[in-house]
Each structure stands twice: as C-alpha cells, then as structure tokens.
Amino acid sequence: MMGKIACANVLSDLYAMGVTECDNMLMLLGVSTKMTEKERDVVIPLIMRGFKDSALEAGKTCTTVTGGQTVVNPWCTIGGVATTVCQPNEYIVPDNAVVGDVLVLTKPLGTQVAVNAHQWLDQPERWNRIKLVVSEEDVRKAYHRAMDSMARLNRIASRLMHKYNAHGATDITGFGLLGHAQTLASHQKNEVSFVIHNLPVIAKMAAVAKACGNMFQLLQGHSAETSGGLLICLPREQAAAYCKDIEKQEGYQAWIIGIVEKGNRTARIIDKPRVIEVPAKE
C-alpha cells in the first residue's frame, strides 16, 4: 500500500496539469538501516510491487518503472519521478481562473488525522484524548478510507478536466488544502482570489482534530495530506456535471468547495466552513 500511495502521489503532478498519460517513471527508494535482513527482504519487495502495480494501473504507456535510485538511511522511504512528452492540447496550464468559477475537490481531507488516530489505538495516553468523540471502529473505517483514497489515481479526474473546460488545477499534498490553494491562486493571470466555504472530511476526523486542540489545523486548511485530490477551477455551469460524471465513472464523490472572486491572487477559508462528513466506503 505504501508503494501504491507513493506512485499515485508522484503521478498526481502530471494529472494536475491535465496530462493523463505517463511516458516514464523512476522509483526512488530508501531502505532503512533499522530493518533486519529478513524484514528488508520481505518489506522492500512489497513496497516496490505496490509502486509498480500503481504504475501499471496508470495505463499502457506507463507499464514499467525504468530505473531510479536506492539509498540506505534511517527511514524506509519511497518516492519517484514521472515524466511525459505531450502536445499543447494535452495539458492545461494552471493560470486561467476567472471570476465566477467554482472550486472542486476530488478527494476528502483528513488523511493525516486518520493515520495518526489509527496509530493511537495502541497508545493509551493519546487514545484517551480522542476516545470520547470516536470509537475504535470509527478509526479503523477512517483509516481504511484514507488508505483507499491515497492509493486512488487522479487520472479520471484529470481526464474530465478537459471535458468540462477546467481553467487550472493543483494536487493537494503536503502543504494542506490552503497552502496549495494559495499557490494556485498566486499564479493566476487574472486578478482573482479563492474563497473556500466547504470542507469534505473523512467521517469523524474533524471531531478527532478538534479533540486534539489545534494540533492538526485541519479546519484551517493546514493539515498535511498525502496523495490528495485535485483542486480544480471550473466554470460554474460545468462544475455540477463534472462532479456527477466523476462519481458515475469512479463511484466516488467530488465536491464544490468554494468560489473564485475578484481579488489579489490569494486564497482563504471562511471563519466557520461547512464540514461535509464523508462516510467510509464499506
């Protein structure tokens, strides 16, 4: 699963540009010095297999990982590089948002919270902070939803950007929703700003984040996501159809979370955003 998530995350840099075909991938692997030889021989091939399986899922033009680099360090890490050669009509430059566009998000937030909460099931001092707002079953469901979400490719979301005339997009990863929204806003040709009103969050994870004080800053848009969804600027009249189409093709929801208005190329989340509880997929 770790390999699948890493590969999906790498490919999202292409998908955010509307590029749906990958020509070549490299794998960057860090083998932990803390692993025993037996652990290494079991774990590392599994991680590599997950990465390769995800690359295969990305399409016929990206069935092989052609190289990369392996290092030894204290941590077990994996990443990669995805490259492609394409025509101008095959990519969408992320700088054409106009006043009146809406913002669509294609995966729920809260992956960092879900993974941490799952780790805390075995840490009584941590678990005691959140057990009043969430059950062990809730945490396990949220964890599996997070794994499923992070491993899912943004390929269909990217392909539909062309169909519904997207004006630009970015993928949501380590800098959180607001960090990536601000970066996207800062690169717009027009004098616009993004205002986010809705936050789709994996079920119960907003309550967990709140119970931890401001540790995650989830509702402020600063909680890190890994292999998150695409944040897309779409014409208002096309957005609902986009969301309906992606749900029809993938079986997963996308959400209209904000608007593009006249402004100075910044992004913000309103003081009391509406939290949309996204149920775990059974």
Score class of each variant (00 low, 15 high):
residue 6 A to E: 12
residue 6 A to I: 13
residue 7 C to Y: 03
residue 7 C to E: 10
residue 7 C to G: 09
residue 8 A to L: 09
residue 9 N to V: 03
residue 9 N to E: 12
residue 9 N to F: 09
residue 10 V to D: 07
residue 12 S to M: 04
residue 13 D to P: 00
residue 14 L to R: 02
residue 14 L to P: 00
residue 15 Y to D: 08
residue 16 A to N: 07
residue 16 A to G: 14
residue 16 A to S: 15
residue 16 A to D: 06
residue 18 G to W: 05
residue 18 G to T: 07
residue 18 G to D: 09
residue 18 G to P: 07
residue 20 T to W: 04
residue 22 C to F: 04
residue 23 D to W: 06
residue 23 D to R: 11
residue 23 D to S: 15
residue 23 D to V: 04
residue 24 N to V: 13
residue 24 N to K: 13
residue 25 M to E: 11
residue 25 M to A: 12
residue 27 M to H: 05
residue 27 M to P: 04
residue 28 L to T: 14
residue 29 L to C: 00
residue 29 L to H: 02
residue 30 G to I: 02
residue 30 G to V: 03
residue 30 G to E: 14
residue 30 G to R: 05
residue 31 V to L: 08
residue 31 V to R: 12
residue 31 V to Q: 11
residue 32 S to T: 11
residue 32 S to A: 15
residue 32 S to C: 10
residue 33 T to Q: 01
residue 33 T to E: 03
residue 33 T to G: 00
residue 33 T to C: 02
residue 33 T to I: 02
residue 34 K to E: 12
residue 34 K to G: 10
residue 34 K to F: 05
residue 35 M to K: 12
residue 35 M to L: 15
residue 36 T to P: 01
residue 36 T to F: 02
residue 36 T to V: 01
residue 37 E to Y: 05
residue 38 K to A: 11
residue 38 K to F: 06
residue 38 K to V: 08
residue 38 K to P: 01
residue 38 K to D: 10
residue 39 E to Q: 14
residue 40 R to P: 04
residue 40 R to Q: 14
residue 41 D to N: 15
residue 41 D to F: 09
residue 42 V to S: 07
residue 42 V to Q: 09
residue 42 V to D: 08
residue 43 V to P: 00
residue 43 V to S: 01
residue 43 V to D: 01
residue 43 V to K: 02
residue 44 I to D: 02
residue 44 I to A: 00
residue 45 P to A: 11
residue 46 L to H: 12
residue 46 L to A: 13
residue 47 I to A: 01
residue 47 I to G: 00
residue 47 I to Y: 01
residue 48 M to K: 15
residue 48 M to P: 02
residue 48 M to N: 06
residue 48 M to L: 06
residue 49 R to W: 01
residue 49 R to P: 01
residue 49 R to G: 01
residue 51 F to V: 04
residue 51 F to R: 03
residue 51 F to D: 04
residue 52 K to E: 12
residue 52 K to F: 03
residue 52 K to M: 09
residue 53 D to F: 01
residue 53 D to H: 00
residue 53 D to Y: 00
residue 55 A to W: 03
residue 55 A to K: 04
residue 55 A to D: 09
residue 55 A to R: 08
residue 55 A to I: 13
residue 55 A to Y: 02
residue 56 L to M: 15
residue 56 L to Y: 14
residue 57 E to M: 12
residue 57 E to C: 09
residue 57 E to Y: 03
residue 58 A to I: 01
residue 58 A to Q: 04
residue 58 A to P: 03
residue 59 G to W: 07
residue 59 G to C: 11
residue 60 K to D: 10
residue 60 K to G: 05
residue 61 T to C: 05
residue 61 T to Q: 09
residue 62 C to L: 07
residue 62 C to R: 05
residue 63 T to M: 11
residue 63 T to L: 11
residue 63 T to S: 14
residue 64 T to I: 11
residue 64 T to E: 15
residue 64 T to Y: 12
residue 65 V to E: 00
residue 65 V to R: 00
residue 65 V to Y: 00
residue 65 V to L: 01
residue 66 T to H: 08
residue 66 T to W: 05
residue 66 T to N: 11
residue 66 T to S: 14
residue 68 G to Q: 04
residue 68 G to V: 06
residue 69 Q to Y: 10
residue 69 Q to R: 12
residue 69 Q to S: 11
residue 69 Q to I: 08
residue 70 T to D: 04
residue 70 T to V: 14
residue 71 V to Q: 07
residue 71 V to W: 08
residue 72 V to K: 13
residue 72 V to T: 10
residue 73 N to I: 06
residue 74 P to H: 05
residue 75 W to S: 09
residue 75 W to L: 10
residue 76 C to Y: 04
residue 76 C to K: 05
residue 76 C to I: 10
residue 76 C to P: 03
